[in-house]
């Protein structure tokens, strides 16, 4: 693990998300109503909608373009939809959001 500090949790709106640009593509960092953080690909596999602009509810996000819903734990599409977004290890340390750089490197190398 190679934890990279990408910002403070207060920089991400409650029940919202922010974008992080990486060499593996754009990643959305989500903050749930309970102050949990998740990181996943920003790109919806359906039509490429920016998931960081979606409505965050529970531990899920809804794509802003066509309402596909993804579980932030697993990255799996919910309900009748099929699809999967990559998720990335992320953790909180005293309010700082840390993203695993190794997971990003593996993704960009793959």
């Amino acid at each position: 693990m190679n934890w990279i500090d990408i910002g403070h949790i207060d920089d991400v709106p409650l029940r919202g998300a922010r974008l992080v640009k990486t060499s593996a593509g754009c990643i959305a960092v989500f903050r749930t109503g309970k102050d949990e953080v998740f990181a996943a690909s920003d790109t919806c596999p359906h039509k490429g909608g920016p998931l960081s602009e979606g409505i965050v509810h529970g531990q899920k996000v809804t794509c802003p373009l066509h309402n596909m819903v993804f579980d932030l734990n697993t990255g799996a599409a919910q309900g009748a939809d099929e699809g999967q977004i990559p998720t990335y290890p992320v953790r909180l340390d005293g309010g700082r959001i840390l993203l695993d750089g190794d997971a990003l490197a593996n993704r960009s190398a793959a």
Binding site: I4, I6, G7, V20, K21, S23, A105
Partner: peptide
């Protein structure tokens, strides 16, 4: 808030 939270594309791979 309209900017990316972080830009890691410049981090050395």
């Amino acid at each position: 808030r309209f900017q990316p939270l972080a830009d890691l594309t410049l981090e050395a791979a």
